[in-house]
Design a protein around this nucleic acid. Structure first.
Lengths: 84, 84
DNA sequence: GCTTATTATTGTATATATGCAACATTTGGT
DNA sequence: ACCAAATGTTGCATATATACAATAATAAGC
C-alpha cells in the first residue's frame, strides 16, 4: 500500500514535559531508540503505539499526528488568538 | 512491544454508507481483503491506514478506533439524549 | 431453489515497525 | 576544555500489516 509519511509533535511534547526519550519510552513500553525513530519521522508508529503516546500526553491523536506537516505550536497559538 | 488489540467501527460505518468492502477498499487504496481483516479485528491498521479511513468517513480517528471495546452506536445515541 | 455478489479462509510473499547492541556524535553542566 | 548524558547511526533479527490468489461459505435477489 505504499504508506504515506506521518508527521508528529512527539519531540516538542516530550521536551515540554521535560522527559528524556528513555523516560518516555518506559511510560509507553517501547525501546528508547524507537522514540528516536518516531521523532525523526523515520517511520510511522503503529496505531496502538499512537494511542499509547496519545494516552501519555493526554492529547488526542489528531493533535499529535498528521498526514500534513504540523505547524509549530508557538505559531498556531499566536495565530489563533489575534489578541496578542 | 506486544501490540494491544484495537477495536473499530469500520463495518458499521461502511454499511451505514451502503458500501461494499470492494468499494471502501478502492477509496482507501488497499486490497479488499484487508478491509475484511480490519473489520474482523484480526489485525490493527497502520496509522496511515487509520488516517485514510478517518478521511473517507470524515470522522475523527478516536471515534472509529479505540483501545477499549466500542459500544453500539445505537446505544450510545440513546444514552446520550435521555429525552427519548 | 438457483444464481450471483459478498464475505471468510487458507496459504504464501513482501514491506514496514520494533527490538537490540555497539559505536559515533552532539549537547549540557561544571 | 572536560565529562557525562542524551541523541544519532548502522546493522541485523523478529513481529506484524498488507497484497494477492484460489477456494469455501454465506447472503441477497430473483
Amino acid at each position: 500500500m505504499k504508506s504515506r509519511k506521518i508527521f508528529n509533535r512527539i519531540a516538542v511534547l516530550r521536551i515540554e514535559r521535560k522527559m528524556s526519550r528513555q523516560e518516555l519510552a518506559e511510560k509507553i513500553g517501547v525501546n528508547f531508540q524507537t522514540i528516536g525513530y518516531l521523532e525523526r519521522e523515520e517511520y510511522n508508529p503503529s496505531l496502538d503505539l499512537a494511542f499509547r503516546i496519545s494516552e501519555v500526553f493526554k492529547l488526542p491523536i489528531p493533535f499529535i499526528f498528521s498526514t500534513k506537516p504540523l505547524k509549530a505550536l508557538s505559531d498556531e497559538l499566536l495565530n489563533k488568538k489575534t489578541n496578542n
